[in-house]
Design a protein around this nucleic acid. Structure first.
Length: 823
RNA sequence: GCCAGCGUGGCGAAAUGGCAGACGCACGGGACUUAAAAUCCCGGGACCUUAAAAAGUCGUGUGGGUUCGAGUCCCACCGCUGGCACCA
């Protein structure tokens, strides 16, 4: 992997340099370099040694965490700390991708497939490292308002974080001491809850089964006993309506316990992909238990169904089929009662499946209230009664941070055994950094998820009997903070020096952070979310001085293949920059990419378009160079004899039309119009229109018999950011004529435009009759409104257009237009 | 299904509510050339009329609205792109 990476870096570096980009190479870094990832590991230690204090809403050192009274033993205290750390270990079902041989973060799974490669992902319980990004959900959401990103990108992050306000409501389980809590965004519909659904994995299922169906009392599933059976539940339909992959016995299950077991197995075995595909078809089984609705004491049946997710809210819901689409589908399928509790304000709308706000009905003390009022009143009531409270839920999950890869930063963590023989983890000291990976012959992933590093026994086992963590960090770790390292790339004593950090990150004043970050939207909920999270932790710990890493972010559009499709090897529509450069040169390549259209737009590549800008660069060349001497140039281009080539190139003469004389006012106007446009367009990153302005200038300048050198010099400065090679070459040639020093164009100050030179004496303005263009008249710029009106009425065409009509009204926009309203 | 964004010539695209199509590509005609390439000049939304033009009509996804005036603002719909998706 190191060899491949180094070869790739060399190739990219060569390509970037061949394009003539002005990077500061003294700040170059590689996330794979131990001098760099030492600090990645160092930041991990910061995360490991911190906890999120909900009272201060900030990360703090783990040392500030106070132990609860019952944490008396060392083991208990360690376990308590470990449960609060920002980096923690969790044994839970994770996204396992067999093809890649590694686990993946939620953000890396798209439609049940891996983001890289598109391979199937399944759920598998594994011991993995997690980062507590959920603690930052609120700040990650709120601080989006402080940064200058596109709305669509902010919206993607908002959706991913997925904040929703609602209430938690406690339900007592009938005939037992158990209770469970559901989360709902619609507490106002509580009176319409006709059943409850638990996620198949829900803990309560294990508790209520033995309580409702005591061991050793087999019950006929289809019959049940009177108090366990709901007349509204058609047991036979339960069996009949299961999907084919959930095989139920023909006569139903002998006991509900069996049915529940079978259903849980069925739900657990589904891959993410299957879950998505089967999403339309509701499945579930009745547990036999009932819950008591706290608002009216009604007994409602408890079901388990996989449309309720264990990982969101409380893993349990109150189902209100009348006003929730999913509950409605489920209730229809299993013949569960549907009770209306919300009346649409629009009388034409059917209340069945109505999920919007309306007015509460059949709802006791909240009947007649509008939905927001009803929510507020019932929430207050629930809190008063001690059976519920307002809460906020987020869709965001903690970040699965470990991978089963050889090529990743090793965790600075070792495992030890306590007195009872239980394993626990411990951080290595900062002095142990960087933790280097061992050299391995076989670094490939394993089929069972065992990390490749586990093969290096000599590396894993330490003399004191402890063992090293063998998982590695994901590729995001290194990219989470690289922008900070750019500020101080060679610092050996800190991840970034305080002064450097302050100087660069605060240089924007009111716009703190990276001034401008250009990148694709594919990182919306990956890199851009992770980096914000790390940055906020570093901010809380006093390591950086801004709350956000990237102040302004611009998404460049994707360049599609010539066929309008995404470039891909399989389609054979990939454009290799090396080929374009070989044929047209770096300047044409750069110019074309900027000329294609707005930076943010997705647009197809068109080689003909490259030829177009190449031709433009040719025109620029001929604007400066004597056309007769071009013969020499062509010969020089084709000759292979280097010394002869040099001689021929020397013969190329500047155009005799270029003279060191004062420019006419028309020439200055042409130049300054161009300076204004290019300057403003560069600021707004409208490169396409800036280039078109330069084309207009060149088209005009080509017609000049005498070309003042000062005008051409300034034009070259405008061209330089776009086509630096050609601009610099012509700039140095011009120095033979003008008295200006021949220093590099790079150091010349950007030209300023003079508004006084752009003033027009006479302008053409359109004259409309009833909004339709009828004539264009020339008029002095200083003309008054009355003069404009008079001039418009004097036009023969206008006279003809209003003949036989009465002019009712005249609209005059100074320096813009005249419109006559005539009837 | 939900959220966001976008619909302008044959194509990439311009256009603070004020001359729609700048600039470029493709195309047509001409000059130069023995010829071609390169280069230079001219033309160019559609329709109607014409030998040619002028003039005229229509035209920014569709239908409505606001306005003296709409590609631009508002409402509804259609289509495309991106994102999310059983998140209670």
């Amino acid at each position: 992997p190191r060899k491949t990476t180094e070869a790739n870096i060399a190739n990219f570096t060569r390509q970037i340099k061949s394009l003539g980009f002005s990077y500061d190479w003294s700040r170059e870094l590689a996330t794979t370099d131990p001098d760099y990832f030492k600090w990645t590991q160092w930041i991990f230690l910061k995360l490991y040694n911190s906890w999120f204090n909900p009272e201060t809403n900030k990360a703090e050192s783990i040392d500030t965490l106070k132990f609860p009274a019952d944490c008396t033993t060392e083991e208990k205290q360690r376990a308590y700390r470990d449960s609060k750390r920002l980096a923690y270990v969790s044994e839970a079902p994770v996204n396992w991708c067999p093809e890649l041989g590694t686990v993946l973060a939620n953000e890396e799974v798209i439609d049940g497939k891996s983001e890289v490669g598109g391979f199937p992902v399944i759920r598998k319980p594994m011991l993995q490292w997690m980062l507590r990004i959920t603690a930052y959900a609120e700040r990650l959401l709120n601080d989006l308002d402080t940064i200058d990103w596109t709305d669509s990108l902010k919206e993607m992050q908002r959706n991913w974080i997925g904040r929703s306000e609602g209430a938690e409501v406690d339900f007592q389980i009938a005939g037992s001491s158990f209770k469970t809590t559901v989360f709902t965004t619609r507490p106002d519909t509580l009176f319409g809850a006709t059943y409850m659904v638990l996620a198949p994995e829900h803990k309560l299922v294990d508790q209520i089964i033995p309580s409702v169906w005591p061991e050793g009392t087999p019950v006929d599933w289809k019959g049940g006993t009177a108090n366990q059976r709901s007349s509204s539940i058609d047991q036979s339909s339960i069996v009949a309506n299961q999907p084919s992959s959930f095989v139920a016995p023909k006569d139903g299950f002998a006991t509900p316990t069996e049915a529940i077991k079978a259903y849980r197995a069925f739900a657990a075995g589904k891959s993410d992909l299957e879950r998505t595909e089967l999403a339309k078809d509701k499945t579930g089984v009745f547990t036999g238990a009932y819950a008591i609705n706290p608002v009216n004491g009604e007994k409602i049946p408890i079901w388990i169904a996989d449309y309720v997710l264990a990982s969101y809210g409380t893993g349990a819901i109150m189902a209100v089929p009348a006003h929730d689409t999913r509950d409605f589908e489920f209730a229809k399928k299993f013949n569960l009662p549907v009770i209306q509790v919300v009346q649409p304000t629009d009388s034409k709308t059917d209340w069945q499946g109505f999920t919007d706000d309306g007015v509460s009905v059949n709802s006791g003390f909240i009947t007649g209230l509008s939905t927001p009022e009803a929510k507020a009143k019932i929430s207050a009531w629930l809190e008063e009664q001690g059976v519920g409270e307002k809460t906020i839920n987020y869709k965001l999950r903690d970040w699965l941070f470990s991978r089963q890869r050889y090529w990743g930063e090793p965790f600075p963590i070792i495992w030890k055994k306590d007195a009872a023989g239980n394993l626990y983890h411990e951080a290595l000291p900062e002095s142990a950094l960087p933790v280097l990976p061992p050299t391995l012959e076989d670094y490939k992933p394993t089929a069972d998820g065992q990390p490749p590093l586990a093969r290096a026994a000599g590396w894993v086992n330490l003399p004191d009997g402890s063992t090293r963590e063998t998982n590695t960090m994901p590729q995001w770790a290194g990219s989470c903070w690289y922008y900070l390292r750019y500020l101080d790339a060679k610092n050996n004593s800190a991840f970034v020096g305080k002064d450097a950090e302050n100087y660069w990150m605060k240089s924007g004043g009111e716009k703190p952070g990276v001034d401008l970050y250009v990148g694709g939207t594919e990182h919306a909920v990956l890199h851009l979310l992770y980096a914000r999270f790390w940055h906020k932790v570093l901010f809380d710990l006093g390591q950086v001085s801004t709350a956000e890493p990237f102040f302004k972010l611009v998404n460049q559009g994707l360049i599609l293949g010539e066929d309008g499709q995404k470039m891909s090897k399989s389609r054979g529509n990939v454009v290799n920059p090396d080929d374009v450069l070989a044929e047209f040169g770096a300047d044409a390549f750069r110019l074309y990419e900027m000329f294609m259209g707005p930076l943010q737009d997705t647009k197809p590549w068109n080689t003909r378009g490259v030829e177009g800008v190449y031709r433009f660069l040719g025109r620029v060349w001929r604007l400066f160079v004597d056309e007769k001497s071009e013969v020499e140039f062509e010969q020089a281009e084709t000759t292979t004899d280097a010394s002869k080539q040099g001689e021929l190139l020397k013969l190329i003469q500047l155009s005799p039309a270029i003279k060191d004389i004062a420019a006419t006012s028309a020439q200055l106007k042409t130049l300054h119009t161009c300076i204004k446009k290019v300057t403003e367009d560069l600021d707004g990153m409208r490169f396409n229109t800036a280039i078109s302005a330069m084309m207009v200038f060149v088209n005009e300048a080509m017609t000049w018999e005498v070309k003042p050198v000062a005008v051409l010099r300034e034009f070259l400065q405008l061209l330089a950011p776009f086509a630096p090679h050609l601009a610099e070459e012509l700039w140095s040639r011009l120095s033979t004529i003008s008295q200006q020093p021949s220093t590099s164009l790079t150091y010349a100050a950007w030209p300023k435009f003079d508004p006084a030179l752009l003033v027009e004496n006479e302008i053409e303005i359109p004259v409309q009759v009833n909004g339709k263009l009828r004539d264009v008249i020339k008029i002095a710029t200083t003309a008054s409104q009355a003069e404009m009106e008079t001039a418009a009425l004097a036009s023969e065409k206008i006279k003809a257009a209003i003949a036989g009509k009465t002019v009712k009204k005249v609209i005059v926009v100074p320096k813009k237009m005249v419109n006559l309203v005539a009837v």
